[in-house]
Design a protein around this nucleic acid. Structure first.
Length: 258
DNA sequence: ATGGCCAATTTTATTGGA
């Protein structure tokens, strides 16, 4: 059977709900990982999503962060947060078992500037993420979805000279991304598409989308065996157009499983 | 075309995003 998985930093699910519902209706993913829902569980739009055919598990937070996983079937074994960051109140990771496939929705810290405490926090968060991933059985189907705030290589950056050295694109971050893959994962978008110039985020400012000054920072990483079952992957660039877009667009992948 | 920040809260400023 086919499994379609998508990830999208919606930058407020309350503002983006009409657009999210349209996307779900058109694309019918089996799993939709969301980031920056920016709402507590009490105010999460469970009912509207249920009407659209999706149940949701949520790690909510007011104003900032917040991640969720929408699924067409009920999920089991929901986990929230990184064990090694138990004192961190930022809602940046949720994991659930979807029909035997473990799915994570993650929102890696942006990092502010490289000389800031926010960047140290980003590094620490990534260290704990790698620690968590190292405990996983990657011989089993596992998919890490989310806004990773890392552009993996020069093809993923519109202007690599200008972005080089920023928190999203520098030698350390490229190394972090490679280290995550080395734990047993494959960037399935890159597996299916070798071209540069395909981005998942454009700044709201400076006519960035018009100029296609974007970055590919939203990713779907599948455990090696599952990546071999990936039949297609893409980025829905058109979701950056029109009224009230998120600054990120959905990234999706299909798998032939079972 | 796809447009010149956006969203939430602390709301007529501030914070964070990336």
């Amino acid at each position: 059977m086919q499994l379609k998985v998508a990830t999208w930093n919606v930058n407020s699910i309350r503002i983006r709900l009409p657009r999210l519902l349209l996307w779900l209706e058109e694309h019918q993913p089996d799993v939709m990982a969301l980031q920056e829902v920016k709402v507590m569980e009490e105010l999460f739009p469970y009912a509207a999503l249920r009407e659209a055919g999706y149940s949701a598990v949520v790690a909510g937070q007011r104003t900032y962060n917040g991640v969720a996983i929408l699924t067409k079937t009920e999920v089991a074994e929901v986990g929230r947060g990184l064990q090694e960051m138990a004192e961190d109140t930022a809602a940046r990771l949720i994991v659930a078992d979807v029909a035997g496939i473990k799915i994570a929705s993650i929102y890696v810290p942006n990092g502010g500037t490289v000389d800031s405490a926010k960047y140290a926090y980003k590094l620490e968060w990534l260290r704990c993420l790698k620690s968590f991933l190292a405990t996983q059985d990657v011989s089993r189907p596992l998919i890490i979805c989310g806004d990773m705030n890392i552009a993996p290589d020069e093809r993923d950056v519109a202007n690599s000279e200008r972005w080089e050295g920023t928190v999203l694109y520098n030698e350390d971050m490229r190394g972090e991304f490679a280290n995550i893959l080395a734990l047993g994962f494959i960037d399935v978008f890159r597996q299916c598409n070798q071209d540069g110039g395909l981005y998942s985020w454009w700044d709201y400012r400076q006519l960035s989308f018009v100029r296609n000054d974007g970055l590919r920072i939203d990713h779907i990483l599948a455990s090696n065996g599952l990546a071999g079952c990936c039949t297609a992957a893409g980025i829905d660039r058109d979701m950056r157009k029109g009224e009230a877009p998120s600054d990120h667009v959905p990234v999706w992948a299909t798998f032939e499983v079972g």
